[in-house]
């Protein structure tokens, strides 16, 4: 555990807190992509299947359960709970996620660590996480203007990815035999998807102003 990894996990947790607060306190899921949240639920449920047989630390196992629980709760609230379910707009949030899930499943089958069923599922979850934010980014793009809490949510997720990237660099130089090409590749792609958002986020928040983020 290093500081980058720890802060990365914390900002990941923060993103869940922001989103849960937004939809429970604000009673609205407007601007939030249910598609992205469903993808995250699939990602965590498939990657953390190994909760049943792998144990590396209490910290890890606890957070795995937290991530599955939070993403499931978010999906449940937006899909089934009133009044939130009535604020979700399926016409706006209509990214065809089958085009993300399909290719990631094929990639997981073909490119994985050692051709065991769990490694295939695990690789699938890594690939799917890399692109899971796309429906959310497309939704924001369509809306043009992004509500503050939503922009903080995406920013926290982006920070989590950036910090994980730094964690990998740190581990590469401080540990022997630390090599995970699949994770590095997918993680770099994933972080890259946030660059445009961060540019606009910075533009609207600089100088202490708290204007909503405007996307072209």
């Amino acid at each position: 555990m290093n500081i980058f990894r720890f802060l990365g996990d914390m900002s990941h947790i923060l993103s869940f807190v922001i989103l849960l607060l937004k939809i429970t306190q604000g009673k609205s899921a407007a601007g939030i992509s249910l598609r992205t949240q469903e993808l995250y639920m699939i990602v965590f449920c498939s990657r953390y299947l190994d909760l049943f047989w792998n144990f590396s630390s209490l910290y890890n196992s606890f957070l795995k359960v937290v991530f599955i629980a939070c993403s499931s709760a978010i999906v449940y609230i937006i899909r089934f709970k009133s009044p939130q379910k009535d604020t979700w707009n399926p016409e706006l949030d209509n990214f065809p996620i089958q085009y993300l899930i399909g290719p990631c499943a094929v990639a997981g089958l073909l490119i994985n660590q050692d051709w065991t069923p769990f490694e295939m599922i695990w690789a699938f979850s890594i690939y799917l996480e890399a692109v899971a934010i796309l429906p959310q980014l497309f939704l924001l793009q369509k809306q043009g203007e992004v509500e503050n809490l939503t922009s903080h949510y995406v920013a926290a997720l982006g920070a989590y990815r950036g910090l994980y990237l730094m964690n990998w660099v740190y581990r590469y130089f401080t540990e022997d035999d630390y090599l995970q090409r699949i994770v590095w590749f997918a993680g770099t792609v994933q972080t890259g998807l946030y660059i445009d958002f961060f540019y606009h986020y910075y533009q609207s928040k600089r100088g202490g102003l708290s204007r909503p983020v405007k996307l072209p």
Binding site: Q113, N167, L179
Partner: peptide, 10 residues
């Protein structure tokens, strides 16, 4: 492939 990759990240 990465035989040594540890699954200790989230």
């Amino acid at each position: 492939y990465d035989g040594a990759a540890p699954k200790d990240e989230l």
